[in-house]
């Protein structure tokens, strides 16, 4: 008897194909939803920076400016050149047009400079302190090695908010209130443990024999670190640079406590102060917000190709 295939066979190949299409669809749709969720506020920030106050408050909102304008940015860069902004001079303008610039507007560029100085110093000092510390802990067996790892990590178990008051007291005793130094010191206290931790993970993944080979080849410990370990740990160094830069650039709580004047105020503090002015000018605020986003974005673009490999390097050996 010839074998005939049963009539109602299920076409498994077709099924699999459909299954794959559905799967891909779900992934794409979820990705779009997630991206929209994340990007919407940023897009509105950027878009509104190029709108007039009138357009910003129009209903429904314009996602794409109908009359794009650069005057918000012009106002930022010329703030302080004109007469000082006071309650009197401000009320001269037309409240409906919302052409107000905040009374602290002239501090914007100095505060940006403060933010940059603090962030860059924190990045550099992190590397200077964190790299040798991590190398020592990863590759040198000394008395108290494990204890120091735990100690470093334990400092990070305490929430920052609990540290604010002690930090404040110490900074005041040191007479460092309202200085950039106070920010650098406290940001280091927050970021160095992470830096050391990330780098320990990475250095431990590099074989001990590499370190030994370098030292037999004529390197001192420091030279072995610089000539062999650093070039190999570029991805994790980039992760550290990004992490410390962004943390310092965005930090708010400590900066709010320690800074009072334009001598040390950082960008997040100044931006926040705009919202507590006599009247809030959204156009100006959003333009300033865009400027605040630019440096981190530049840093991220420059180091983009290293980010993923650096962040996962610690987790998966090697």
């Amino acid at each position: 008897m010839p074998i005939t295939p049963p009539v109602d066979t299920i076409d498994y190949r077709r099924r699999q194909k459909i299954g794959r299409i559905v799967q891909r669809l779900v992934i794409v749709v979820s990705a779009i939803v997630l991206a929209a969720y994340i990007l919407a506020p940023v897009s509105w920030l950027v878009s509104s920076a190029f709108q007039t106050e009138t357009e910003i408050v129009s209903i429904p909102p314009h996602w794409i400016p109908e009359e794009p304008t650069l005057r918000n940015f012009e106002a930022i860069f010329s703030a302080g050149n004109d007469e000082p902004v006071t309650y009197e001079t401000r009320s001269g303008a037309d409240p409906a047009a919302g052409d107000f610039i905040p009374s602290t507007a002239e501090n914007l560029l100095p505060s940006m400079a403060n933010s940059l100085i603090v962030s860059i110093l924190v990045v550099i000092l992190n590397l200077l302190v964190g790299v040798p510390a991590a190398y020592a802990i990863a590759k040198i067996r000394f008395w108290g090695r494990n204890a120091s790892v735990y100690f470093i990590l334990i400092t990070r178990v305490i929430p920052d908010i609990a540290l604010v008051v002690p930090f404040f007291l110490v900074i005041r005793k040191l007479g460092m209130l309202d200085t950039l130094g106070s920010l650098v010191i406290t940001y280091l206290a927050i970021t160095v443990p992470f830096t050391v931790f990330i780098l320990i993970q990475y250095f431990e993944g590099l074989p001990d024999e590499l370190d030994k080979a370098a030292r037999v080849d004529g390197c001192s410990r420091l030279q072995a670190l610089i000539k062999v370990f650093l070039p190999l740990s570029l991805p994790s160094l980039v992760a550290v640079v990004l992490f410390t830069f962004l943390t310092s650039w965005n930090e708010f709580l400590l900066a709010l406590m320690f800074t009072q004047t334009s001598a040390s105020q950082t960008l997040p503090i100044l931006l926040a102060s705009f919202t507590s002015d006599f009247t809030v000018s959204f156009s100006f605020l959003n333009a300033a917000g865009v400027l605040a986003v630019v440096p981190p974005v530049i840093v991220a673009i420059v180091f983009e190709r290293y980010i993923v490999s650096g962040l996962t390097a610690g987790a998966v050996k090697g």
């Binding site: 074989p207 030994k212 080979a213 037999v216 080849d217 004529g218 030279q223 062999v228 070039p231």
Partner: peptide, 30 residues
Amino acid sequence: VPPHKRDVAMVFQSYALYPHKTVYDNIGFG
């Protein structure tokens, strides 16, 4: 006396070549 001040050379089981250097630079490093 630290290793870099002793006139010794060493070959390791894992070879321990420097992954970021060429063969030429590996050999010439010392």
